[in-house]
Nucleic acid binder design. Structure first.
Length: 309
DNA sequence: CGCGTTTGACCAGCGC
DNA sequence: GCGCTGGTCAAACGCG
């Protein structure tokens, strides 16, 4: 097709006009699984995703929901990333935050910041944790402002656009993105009570990079994989919320099989819970034996039978 | 038949 | 005020 431009200097990837990520450019990308990961562990934990900060995976960038479109405060580049990320993190956390599990320890540490999130109406709870915050469809139409949930994005080197993360998603839209030859896909958690959404797009810089942006937080357990059968997420929803994404299983990247294992930190409890981590869950493929080489980590992914469809 | 994807249209927010 | 762009809807369609 037409990859129109390499316009980007290479240092930063800009997906929408609104946010910028930068890990060092396409080149560095290849060898850098370490896209980023600065102080984001806090962010992740906010979302219930605990990952070893030093783990190489992809960069998590929390996008915040400020007034209207500012999705990411500041751009991440070099050392700034830390600060920036940190800022964002604190900022958003406080607001709606999210952790249905209820633990927004990390960033909340900065109470003052919380105000920054200002605008979000208290009522706006994320996910089914509170109640269907989002006015369904057209009803929302006029007057109502789009409510943004805390979000964060991460980049993953993958061949497949839609990476399995243990949840089931339904695509509800696709749109061409400006400055990018690749379309952006919009997904929504299939759990009727869960309002988590995610956007998936490819980096115009490096087509092998998939940028996934999550918005909101799951209020139910992962469903493992379609084939494996669903887990009573409904129940989870109705009942008490759980540390949402109890695990960060990113099938798109084989290595993640290990993640759950190493993840166990603050939420280790959760991980050990019955629901267990996706990694340990009944995942289909046997690819385990694959040595997580750098290449393997982000390079070869595409779990054989992971795609549900 | 149920569920998920595709796709064109519509709407909201933002920048100029 | 206007145009652009992102985000969402929903009908149509495909697949198992």
């Amino acid at each position: 097709m037409e990859d129109k431009e390499g316009s980007n200097p290479g240092a930063e990837f800009t997906s929408d006009s609104s946010w910028t990520l930068s890990g060092g450019g396409p080149d560095s990308v290849s060898n850098s699984v370490n896209y980023f990961f600065d102080g984001e562990s806090s962010i992740l934990s906010e979302f219930g995703w605990d990952l070893p900060t030093d783990h190489e995976f992809g960069r998590f960038v929390e996008l915040d929901r400020t007034e209207a479109r500012l999705e990411l405060a500041g751009n991440f580049s070099g050392s700034q990333s830390c600060a920036a990320a940190d800022d964002v993190a604190r900022c958003s956390v406080s607001g709606t935050a999210s952790n249905p599990g209820g633990t927004a320890d990390v960033s909340t540490s900065n109470p003052s910041v919380s105000s920054s999130s200002s605008e979000d109406p208290p009522e706006k709870s994320t996910g089914c944790g509170g109640k269907p915050p989002e006015i369904p469809s057209k009803v929302r139409k006029k007057g109502q402002k789009r409510i943004r949930q805390p979000r964060f994005a991460f980049m993953t080197k993958s061949e497949v656009d839609h990476l399995e993360d243990g949840y089931r998603w339904r695509k509800y839209g696709q749109k061409a993105v400006k400055n990018s030859p690749f379309p952006r896909s919009y997904y929504r958690c299939t759990n009727s009570k869960c309002i988590v959404k995610k956007r998936v797009e490819r980096s115009s810089e490096d087509p092998t990079i998939v940028i996934t942006t999550y918005e909101g937080q799951h209020c139910h357990h992962s469903v493992a994989f379609p084939r494996g059968g669903l887990i009573s997420h409904e129940a989870a929803c109705g009942g008490q919320l759980t540390p949402a994404v109890s695990q960060f299983y990113h099938p798109g990247v084989q290595l993640h099989r290990e993640i759950p294992l190493s993840i166990t930190q603050s939420q280790s409890q959760a991980h050990q819970a019955p629901i267990d981590v996706g990694g340990s869950r009944s995942e289909p493929e046997p690819t385990t034996s694959k040595p997580p080489t750098d290449e393997g980590l982000l390079g070869d992914i595409v779990p054989p039978g992971m795609r549900n469809r």
